[in-house]
Design a protein around this nucleic acid. Sequence first.
DNA 1: ATAGTTGCAAAATATTTGCATTTAT
DNA 2: ATAAATGCAAATATTTTGCAACTAT
Lengths: 151, 151
Amino acid sequence: MEKEIFEKFLRERGQKFTKERSAIFEKAFSYDGHFNPETLYLKIKETGMKVSRASVYRTLNILSECGLIEKVMNTEQGAVYEHTFGQKHHDHMLCVSCGGIIEFYSGDLEKLQEELCGSLNFQGVSHTLEIRGYCKKCQKNKGNREGEKTP
Amino acid sequence: MEKEIFEKFLRERGQKFTKERSAIFEKAFSYDGHFNPETLYLKIKETGMKVSRASVYRTLNILSECGLIEKVMNTEQGAVYEHTFGQKHHDHMLCVSCGGIIEFYSGDLEKLQEELCGSLNFQGVSHTLEIRGYCKKCQKNKGNREGEKTP
DNA sequence: ATAGTTGCAAAATATTTGCATTTAT
DNA sequence: ATAAATGCAAATATTTTGCAACTAT
């Protein structure tokens, strides 16, 4: 189980498995998809549990080092994480109008990247592909872009 | 010439072509590759010209809207831009050991992405692919990773 | 002349850190 | 008992913004 990986990781580094870390871990793994530090923090507060943003950030960093979660994107409104356990690798399309994220996977794409790495003598470890554009819904009303002032 | 595109863009929007905007434009286009707002700001200051960070940020936003430059990455130390004029589109391999960036281009990759967008009803505008791993040189001495404390 | 721009300093946002107190081991 | 973690508030860092002074048109 994933939690044991976390506990083992902490033990090996002489770090403690506190209830805050436990709660942050649980919440991070309760998400199927993306989450960001702030929403995770708020979700935990909602449950009545007492945590600080500091602990959230600190713990997310540990979970990243541990490989259990991954920062998949840096956006203007902060980092976006997802947990890696049992997650199929996938890439993202980001709608610049509504901010929606579409996940997709393509075996061909993966294969092609491996070939590219091979031909450039680069040992690829991971990658992120982000395609920006307009989702189906937003293609219709491209006039009103989010964020633009409409006085 | 690219500068005329900028001037025209401003004129059409009833905005002014100031010497600050001119300097920021020049500097942005003096880079072959990537730059970030802060280094660009410092470079201009170096020349003795008086500009503010505010103007740099404001002008980079205009140049983006205008399509002359593009934000290619959000990193923890801020945005990374590059100008788009005469730039062949390319993607990046980032060596996690030495921080080196290898640029590459693959027509097959582009085509594949278009197909993926088409099949998902997404109207792609731009994309960033970042492959992280080890460059040829660093594959040899993978033991000493940069950033790891060696007490 | 005037609408838009500048620089500054302050604000906003995301994240990190120092420190006294608390807690897991 | 003790080394590490917590929460808080203050510090950083990047980017944005309000405003009075300036400038391109």
